[in-house]
Amino acid sequence: MILDLHSHSTVSDDGRAKVENYCQWIKRKEIPIDGFVLTEHRLYDDASDYRSLEDQFGLLILKASEVETEYGHVLVFGVTQELQAAFNFSQINLSLATVLEESERCGGIAVPCHPGRPRVGMCAHIGTRGEVEGVRTIETLNGGSRGNENEQAASLAARKGYARIGGSDSHIVSHIGRCATRLHAEVRDMNELVASLKEGGCEAVKLEDRAWIPES
């Protein structure tokens, strides 16, 4: 099963894509993907309900969040009301340790994203702040990465033995599905996605010539 685990809609302050338009694009361009996760910036979108779009387009559409910590940005899957009460999603200087611990405590999982990116990726901060305990998975393929940012992330994953995910980090319609995650198990909802990620049953893949290619 292939899911794009990192995308933004107009709910994010810098998102320019409506969710319906993502669905239309995926179908029109025949992108071989089973669904995507909306990881809105610094918030969890309680209000939106995409079930009718799921039915209409035959896609799985899940909701998560991208928060900001002293080690950079972090995707949080399995957001609950309890987790939203545990820390302020809108703050830009959250403690990564807190985000990791609270996510686990509340049944979710936190995944540092684009770790090779300057300033907002984990690699840039390990040298000054030290290694991070509690990370089990990182995003090693990000569709918005430049230069060798994805390679840095892959090196970190190899060195630390982290599981790997991929996501497009799309903010506009045509970027959805540039990178994604192959899940070893079928998932039907966020609980099953979190379980799959915690088991490490995932790999980062990128789309080339209409086929999913593992990261090199």
Binding site: H41, S90, R117
Partner: peptide, 10 residues
Amino acid sequence: VYEKTGRSGG
């Protein structure tokens, strides 16, 4: 009024 961080800083 809100803050964010990006590859160019805060």
